[in-house]
Design a binder for these strands. Structure first.
Length: 116
DNA sequence: CGGTTGACCAAGT
DNA sequence: GACTTGGCCAACC
C-alpha cells in the first residue's frame, strides 16, 4: 500500500451515495495530475467493492467513472460482466446508466472542490 | 535507472 | 463520428 493510494482512497471514501466522481477529479483533489495513476490505484484496490465488514475501510470504487461519464473499468477489466456489476451497483444507489454511460452525469458528479 | 504499461485525458486529424 | 498523438504519474519489469 503506497501513500499515493491511501490518499486516493481517502478521497474516494468522501463520495456520498448517489454521486459519482472521476479519475481526473480524484487526481486533482489529491494535488496531482496523475489520472492514470488513480486508475492504477483502483486496480490494486484492497476492497474490490462493497460489503466490507469494516465500513471505515470500505472503498466505493464503483462510484468512479471516466471524465466523459463513461463507466470506465471495473475489477481489472474494461468490458464484460464486471461492468454490468458496476452498473448494477450504481443503479442500486440511484444513478442511472445507459449504454455504459452515466445519465445526468454533470449533475451527479462530485467535483474536486467538494472534497474536504 | 531507463522502458513499458495502464480502470486516463485532451486536442488534433 | 472514429482514430492518432502526446502527455500525465505510479508501478513493474
Amino acid at each position: 500500500m503506497t501513500s499515493f493510494m491511501q490518499r486516493t482512497y481517502e478521497l474516494l471514501r468522501q463520495v456520498p451515495k448517489g454521486r459519482v466522481t472521476t479519475y481526473k477529479e480524484l487526481a486533482h483533489a489529491s494535488g496531482t495530475k496523475a489520472y492514470r495513476a488513480v486508475g492504477h490505484a483502483m486496480r490494486h484496490n484492497p476492497y474490490s467493492f462493497i460489503d466490507c465488514e469494516d465500513k471505515n475501510q470500505q472503498i466505493p470504487c464503483h462510484r468512479v467513472v471516466a471524465t466523459n461519464g463513461a463507466i470506465g473499468g471495473f475489477m481489472g477489466k474494461t468490458t464484460g460482466k464486471a461492468i454490468d456489476l458496476k452498473v448494477a451497483l450504481l443503479e442500486q444507489e440511484g444513478i442511472n446508466v445507459e449504454n455504459a454511460k452515466v445519465i445526468d452525469f454533470g449533475n451527479k458528479l462530485f467535483t474536486a472542490a467538494e472534497f474536504k
